[in-house]
């Protein structure tokens, strides 16, 4: 920001200041009424745009099957959310709670492991000088550019070679890789972890691994939370890899499970309501994780962007 303003010729800045003062009268440097309202309006429109589908989902999940098509889509009729949840939780031998648990496992444990790995890797790249360091980093950066979807089919063929498709590991192992996490962790570690502190730790006789987990991790915490959140959401929403890898219903994450139900709506029409209620349940964990970690995430994002 500071560089941009500096680039503007001083005379132009002065002119802007004088005209601004004229417009605002005695109110000094405060924003004008019009731009503020415009900004609020734009934000309000986008908020409505993003929240309406969620509102619709919430309303739809409280309705009976008949009311779903016959009553106003954006307002409640007879509320029977409890019955719907009970029905969807017990359909198919109670498979939906199982899917939610699977998703929590894939996303929660997967994101945790991915964060630790990415944190260690990024830290090593930032703090240790070794031959080939930039090469390793550039290869990892290249990984950011390859979409995960493009890797799903090759992964399937690889896992087929070792007969490991249709297992927990076939979805879990690819999930713990996060090139973007490595990138972010390196950038962050380079600035947030002072060399002097590491030197001090070394002088006190702390090993490198111990220093990492006791000193550096604390300093890198905001970045690590960001990596965790990104990866959690990415795994939670990952649909294509499980679709290709898994055949056993009890291994499905909730995204794939709901999609599977949705394709059977023609045969079993009550599934339409179950898919809606299930979708509502499936976004609850995401909302919880966001609310809990939001504070850290904002710091992390800002830091990553500036440094």
């Amino acid at each position: 920001m500071s560089t941009t303003t500096a680039a503007v010729p001083p005379s132009a800045r002065a002119r802007a200041r004088t005209t601004g003062r004229k417009d605002n009268g005695r109110n000094g440097p405060r924003e004008g009424f019009l731009p503020r309202t415009a900004a609020m309006l734009v934000m309000a429109v986008f908020t409505v745009y993003f929240l309406t589908p969620i509102w619709w989902l919430l309303v739809a999940s409280t309705k009976s099957r008949g009311d779903l098509t016959t009553t106003n889509a954006l307002w409640f009729s007879d509320i029977q959310l409890g019955e719907n949840i009970a029905a969807v939780a017990s359909y198919g031998g109670g498979v939906l709670p199982r899917w939610l648990l699977n998703s929590v496992l894939y996303a929660g444990v997967g994101a945790l492991v991915a964060t630790v790995l990415a944190g260690m890797c990024g830290y090593a790249l930032a703090k240790y000088v070794f031959p080939g360091r930039e090469l390793v980093f550039n290869v990892v950066l290249g990984g950011v550019l390859v979409p995960a979807t493009a890797l799903a089919l090759p992964l399937f063929l690889l896992f087929s070679q070792v007969n490991a498709t249709n297992t927990f590991w076939s979805v879990f192992l690819p999930s713990i890789v996060s090139p973007f996490g490595v990138y972010l962790a390196r950038i962050f570690a380079a600035s947030a972890v002072p060399e002097e502190l590491l030197e001090a730790a070394r002088l006190d006789g702390s090993g490198e691994v111990r220093t990492f987990f006791t000193v550096s991790v604390r300093l890198m915490f905001p970045a690590l939370v960001t990596v965790f959140l990104f990866q959690f959401v990415a795994i939670w929403n990952n649909f294509f890899l499980p679709l290709i890898m898994l055949r056993d219903e009890s291994l499905f994450p909730v995204t794939l499970g709901l999609y599977t139900w949705n394709t059977q709506v023609n045969q079993v029409p009550e599934l339409r309501l179950y898919v809606l209620t299930g979708a509502l349940l499936s976004i609850v964990p995401l909302i919880i994780v966001f609310l809990l970690l939001q504070r850290f995430w904002r710091t992390g994002l800002g830091t990553g962007a500036l440094k």
Binding site: I244, R247, D248, E249, Y259, T260, N262, T263
Partner: peptide, 13 residues
Amino acid sequence: QTGPNGNGGTYQN
């Protein structure tokens, strides 16, 4: 083993 309906992904699988 199960999955989505044929055109929904099972044929490709």
